[in-house]
Structures are given as structure tokens and as C-alpha cells.
């Protein structure tokens, strides 16, 4: 669907060169919800704008369905943009137009005959659940409703791709969930590919199939959301995950020494469960099978997109050999284990 090759963007401001994107390579598949997460200033906003050429890349190319957008002339670019919907953090609705006419706007731009356009707007407002607000001006709407109008507007020309630029960042958590649900429904019903950027790991967790982590102008990690959650490969990914899953261990516990005689040691572990194994009593089986004691410090079960995802921080106490055997048992049963501290 989208293929980004060696994309770099350098801003030239006041004789000073600022690197916004550095050698970005990324592939987004047809029909998936792909998230790009990064802190503000990491380059994600520039990256999403390069895809519809609101920002011109310095080097590299971007293929959308095989067509290189960086080589397009103005005319071709306008036609391409009509087929790429975009939604924004601050909605960007026209205050001079009613909800109906805002959704009508892209259809006017594309030159769709009025009768057909009006019918389309009606359908879209129904899709986003705002048929009763058609004659109202954006000023009267709540943030969530405004974003629904934005989504209806973005879908007007039946796009092949939807770009979401921090679309939920100005919304409260509850509204965020309802907007993400709408995006997931659209993705499912229309098979529409969605590329979103966010700084909120919850958005990735709730909506995305795959994620790219961007840090300091570079993509540092790309992968399945579940595998990044269970096994983050970089400190940046880890810190994003920690923003929503409490994995920080209090200092006192981390540095407490419970070694009282030579053969008994303790190990601090983080165990992640994905999918079906989250529902199995593996812990108690382990404790029965091996002669180790467990001290549970933190536990949590959550959902990543539609899969249960649990995580448990515990301290195992016993002989080194038994602890290692217990850990192997957990690994064999498909759990991810991370040793947090060694004596």
C-alpha cells in the first residue's frame, strides 16, 4: 500500500539545517491500521505530511499503490490528495460552513455533481452518527463530534488511505475511545488502510495492528503491536509502554537483599502473557511443580487491540537451579520473561 524508501527531510531555517527525518524506511500493508508513535519533535508529523506531500521530502521516495508521489506534478498531486483522507488534531473544520457543508467541501473540490454529493454527505453523516447535526455550525459541537465531522469529511471522496494526525490528542479518554472505535469500524467495514500518528500509547494499544516507533528523526523499531508490547526492543519503545503499564519497581524492592544463606537466591522477573495463555493457571502449576516461592509485586491484565495481554512482576525465591527450571517452564509455555535484576 505505502512504501517509504530512505526518506529524509531537512528543514532549512535561518541558515541552520534541522534534520526532521533521517533515512526512514517503512511499509504499510493494505487494510491495516498502522501507528507511528513518537514524542513531540520526533518527526512523526513531518512523516505523515510527506505521504500526501504537504511536506516535500529532501531525499527518498514514497510509493502509494506503486506510484511514486515524490515525482508527481501539481495536477497529479491534487488528484492523489482527493483520494487520501486526512484528519487533524484540531479538526480544522470551516467555521463559515454547517456540518453538512463541511462534509460537502471535499466533494465540491473534486467537482462531484451536487445531487450526487448531497446524497453522499447524507450517508456519511449517518455513518458517523451526526445526521441530526447537519444544519449546525461546528462551533456548537463537542470535540468528539467535531472529529466525527472531520472523519466524515475525510471519507467523502472514498479514499484509498486515511491519514490521522494526532486525531484524538485533543480529546478526553472516553471520547478518544469512541473515535478509535469509529476508526476501527471504518477500517473493518470499508477495508480502509489507516495510518495514524500519536504520542499516546493507548491509541496504539487500542487501535493499531502494527506500530513504528520514531525517535529523534529515525524509526527505531517496527513491528506487530503485541510483540512490541511483550518484548520491546528499544528503550524508547519500553518507555512508551511504561506510560500505560506500570512496570516501575519501587527502589526499596529492587535493592532489597533477601539472600540469607548461600544457596537461596531471589530473582525479580517480569512475565508477559499474550492471548490464550493469559487465561491459564500457569503460575500455580509452576509453583507446585518446582520448589520455589513467589512474591507477587505487580499484576495487570489489559487488551492490546483485541487480544488479552497480561503482565506480572514477581520475585522468585529458591535455589538458582530451581529458579532457572521454573523460568524455562514459563518460557516453554509461551510467556515472555525478562529478568529485572541480578544479585
Amino acid at each position: 500500500m505505502i512504501q517509504i524508501n530512505d526518506l529524509s527531510k531537512i528543514y532549512n531555517g535561518g541558515g541552520q539545517e534541522v534534520m526532521a527525518l533521517k533515512e526512514v524506511n517503512l511499509t504499510v500493508n493494505q487494510g491495516e491500521i498502522f501507528g507511528i508513535i513518537g514524542l513531540s519533535g520526533a518527526g512523526k508529523s513531518t512523516l505523515i505530511r510527506c505521504i500526501n506531500m504537504l511536506e516535500e521530502p529532501t531525499t527518498g521516495n514514497i510509493l502509494i499503490n506503486g506510484q511514486d508521489v515524490t515525482l508527481m506534478n501539481k495536477q497529479e498531486l491534487r488528484r492523489l490528495r482527493q483520494k487520501i483522507g486526512m484528519i487533524f488534531q484540531h479538526f480544522n473544520l470551516l467555521s463559515s460552513r454547517t456540518v453538512f457543508d463541511n462534509v460537502m467541501f471535499p466533494l465540491e473540490i473534486a467537482g462531484v455533481p451536487e445531487k450526487k454529493a448531497r446524497q453522499k454527505v447524507g450517508e456519511l453523516l449517518e455513518l458517523v452518527g451526526l445526521s441530526d447535526k447537519a444544519r449546525v455550525y461546528p462551533e456548537q459541537l463537542s470535540g468528539g463530534q467535531k472529529q466525527r465531522v472531520g472523519i466524515a469529511r475525510a471519507l467523502a471522496n472514498e479514499p484509498v488511505l486515511l491519514l490521522s494526525d494526532e486525531a484524538t490528542s485533543a480529546l478526553d479518554p472516553q471520547t478518544t475511545r469512541s473515535i478509535l472505535k469509529l476508526l476501527k469500524d471504518i477500517n473493518y467495514q470499508l477495508g480502509l488502510t489507516i495510518l495514524l500518528i500519536t504520542h499516546d500509547m493507548n491509541v496504539i494499544k487500542d487501535a493499531c495492528d502494527r506500530v513504528a516507533v520514531i525517535d529523534n528523526s529515525r524509526i527505531v523499531e517496527v513491528g506487530d503491536v503485541l510483540s512490541i508490547f511483550s518484548n520491546p526492543g528499544t528503550p524508547t519503545s519500553r518507555s512508551f509502554i511504561n506510560t500505560i503499564i506500570n512496570k516501575e519497581i519501587p527502589e526499596e524492592i529492587l535493592h532489597r537483599s533477601i539472600v540469607d544463606n548461600g544457596s537461596i537466591v531471589s530473582r525479580l522477573l517480569r512475565v508477559s502473557f499474550i492471548g490464550a495463555s493469559a487465561g491459564e493457571p500457569l503460575m500455580s502449576t509452576m509453583l507446585q511443580k518446582y520448589n520455589v516461592k513467589a512474591n507477587i509485586l505487580y499484576g495487570n491484565i489489559d487488551r492490546v487491540k483485541d487480544t488479552p495481554f497480561g503482565n506480572l512482576t514477581l520475585e522468585l525465591i529458591g535455589t538458582l537451579e530451581l529458579i532457572n527450571q521454573a523460568m524455562d517452564f514459563l518460557r516453554e509455555n509461551g510467556l515472555e520473561i525478562e529478568v529485572l535484576e541480578n544479585d
Binding site: N52, L54, L80, H90, N92, F105, I109, L163
Partner: peptide, 23 residues
Amino acid sequence: GLIEAALSMGANAWQIIRKVLIP
């Protein structure tokens, strides 16, 4: 942002002037 939104929809300059800037 309003101009950017119109650009993202493929609007040309004249459409932006007439439908965004003036109104």
C-alpha cells in the same frame, strides 16, 4: 490548519481563496 486541510483534499489555490480564505 484550515488551509492545510483544504490542501490535503486536493484543493487548488483559487478554491482555497474562494471557499476558505474569504468566507
